[in-house]
Computed example of a mutant assay.
Amino acid sequence: MTLSEEARERLADLVELQPTKNSELQERWGLESGSEVHQYLESELKDYYYRDDNSLIRANKDAAELVDVEPGVVDDEGEGTPAAIRVPELQQQVFSVVAGPDEDSESVVSVLQKLRAEYDIDPEAGDVRSALQSLRRKGVVEVVYRTVPTFRLTVERDSVEVSVAE
Results as ranks from 00 to 15, higher is better:
48 Y>Q: 02
52 D>V: 01
33 S>A: 03
127 D>M: 06
1 M>G: 15
43 S>P: 03
72 G>M: 04
42 E>F: 05
139 G>T: 04
34 G>R: 08
56 L>F: 08
113 Q>D: 13
134 S>M: 12
138 K>G: 10
149 P>Y: 04
4 S>V: 03
156 E>W: 10
41 L>D: 00
125 A>V: 08
47 D>R: 10
108 V>Y: 01
16 E>G: 10
98 V>P: 02
93 Q>N: 13
152 R>D: 00
130 S>W: 15
26 Q>K: 15
150 T>E: 15
137 R>P: 06
165 A>E: 01
156 E>R: 15
129 R>W: 14
157 R>G: 05
155 V>Q: 12
122 D>V: 13
124 E>S: 15
25 L>M: 09
113 Q>P: 04
41 L>E: 02
85 I>T: 05
155 V>A: 14
61 K>S: 13
42 E>G: 09
92 Q>G: 10
153 L>C: 07
20 T>D: 02
82 P>Q: 07
159 S>M: 08
7 A>T: 09
102 D>G: 00
92 Q>L: 11
22 N>Y: 15
141 V>L: 05
46 K>W: 04
3 L>G: 03
13 D>W: 09
91 Q>G: 09
116 R>M: 10
25 L>E: 08
152 R>W: 08
159 S>I: 01
91 Q>R: 12
102 D>C: 02
163 S>P: 02
17 L>T: 05
45 L>D: 05
11 L>Y: 11
91 Q>K: 11
48 Y>E: 07
40 Y>A: 07
75 D>C: 05
107 S>H: 09
156 E>H: 14
139 G>C: 06
149 P>M: 01
8 R>N: 11
152 R>V: 02
117 A>T: 13
81 T>L: 11
39 Q>F: 14
17 L>W: 01
99 A>M: 08
109 V>G: 11
52 D>W: 08
142 E>V: 02
25 L>H: 00
120 D>V: 13
121 I>W: 01
16 E>S: 12
74 V>I: 14
85 I>D: 04
70 E>W: 00
45 L>E: 03
68 D>V: 07
67 V>M: 09
42 E>W: 06
103 E>D: 14
58 R>W: 12
69 V>E: 15
41 L>I: 04
160 V>E: 02
114 K>V: 07
34 G>L: 09
53 D>R: 11
19 P>D: 07
83 A>G: 10
140 V>W: 06
47 D>S: 13
32 E>I: 05
153 L>P: 03
150 T>I: 07
102 D>T: 12
18 Q>S: 06
63 A>I: 03
158 D>P: 04
92 Q>V: 10
57 I>R: 12
105 S>H: 09
98 V>E: 06
9 E>K: 14
64 A>F: 01
33 S>N: 01
122 D>Y: 13
81 T>V: 15
47 D>I: 05
25 L>Q: 08
124 E>I: 11
12 A>V: 02
92 Q>C: 07
60 N>V: 00
52 D>L: 04
144 V>C: 03
14 L>A: 02
154 T>S: 13
145 Y>W: 14
147 T>H: 10
101 P>Q: 15
118 E>C: 00
24 E>D: 09
36 E>D: 10
149 P>C: 07
124 E>Q: 15
152 R>Q: 08
158 D>E: 12
145 Y>T: 12
